[in-house]
Design a protein around this nucleic acid. Sequence first.
DNA 1: ATAATTACTGAATAAATATACAGTATAATG
DNA 2: CATTATACTGTATATTTATTCAGTAATTAT
Lengths: 205, 205
Amino acid sequence: MKNITQQQSRVLDCIQNHINKTGFPPTRADICNDLGFKSPNAAETHLRALEKKGYITIESGRSRGISIVHKSNQEPINHEFPVIGLVAAGSATLASENIEKKIPCAQNLFSDNFDYFLRVRGLSMIEAGIMEDDLVAIKKTQDIKNGDIVVARIDDEVTLKYFKKENSNKVVLKPANKDYSDIVVESSDADLFIEGKSVGLIREN
Amino acid sequence: MKNITQQQSRVLDCIQNHINKTGFPPTRADICNDLGFKSPNAAETHLRALEKKGYITIESGRSRGISIVHKSNQEPINHEFPVIGLVAAGSATLASENIEKKIPCAQNLFSDNFDYFLRVRGLSMIEAGIMEDDLVAIKKTQDIKNGDIVVARIDDEVTLKYFKKENSNKVVLKPANKDYSDIVVESSDADLFIEGKSVGLIREN
DNA sequence: ATAATTACTGAATAAATATACAGTATAATG
DNA sequence: CATTATACTGTATATTTATTCAGTAATTAT
């Protein structure tokens, strides 16, 4: 997580205090009042900086649409697991700009420990009961067996598929949807990297 | 604390859910959107009623200036939720003999609060992405809309199905599996009780 | 050195939002 | 039986609020 300046930290605190006190986030004007700024743009620019650095999210156009992503001061109750979108071509990394939000839960929620949630896009695994927008719990590991559901990266494209190793230099990534076709990767061909495997799933209705 | 009506309760839930989901309270328009009202005054009058009864406070003139005074259930951030098998004919009750195990997680893991997990048996909801052995998070409520996935008890048999009210005395429980047929319940017929509805899902691989 | 970041003031404006007012209708209450 | 509460639609409007633009100035990175 990127460093923030002292003033940005004051603004972040101000937001948290306002929520603690009133139950809802401050407006730009509220921040100015609390911290003594005379222009709403002073608050605005600090908010944009905090957003850029991943500390808050701002819902465009909505009043008080600020939420704090990362609670800097106190330790999370259990542990907060990041939710990463499967959208961005090129990376399912844990870089802050890819983190949609965080979910507090026990690391042993599933039988196997996990590292992050992946937000599912598309219907390629629908016959495995994995629907669009589901959150798949991913464990970062290279310990993959045939039949595992894996997060695979091929040439900077990330997908969720069944894993099947046909022989020493041929891997097949199988979708669970008869309308989709297998992805066959010959070891020479393209570079395939297995980010991890699915150990569970959460669906928010 | 004074009694609130069913509609007022829905509004109160809506406020809490909005805070859980976004971090800030809803506007009148947000409430209308969520609950299907067409006039902002519908939300306004409900809010005034809830304020009068002491459930919320409204800061005059401030956008989203709603705070929930009385947190009906004191929000055990970390709580253990029972897992109940759908096997036993006759009861999806919370009686200890039905509890398979307990899962520690935040009550607001899903956008809507929930009361227990139900272990799914059979394939009747497979096209909704609900597989055998999945844990469906159930909120005990009577606030059911068409299309909700409900836990229904008919003559001591408990099932998970889509809910559809055809008219005042005909309810259809629809499976999400073309090999299964609808269950039609005429109000005179059998006694149907809706235990609650699905608000989320967990799958342990 | 020169661009970028930080840290503001001050003004303007479009959009979001709370809120009042005028109705309609039904159920509950005393 | 009158009154109050509930449960809305629909319209209007003043106010709040987010957000952009034009500046100034100091600090920090490249």
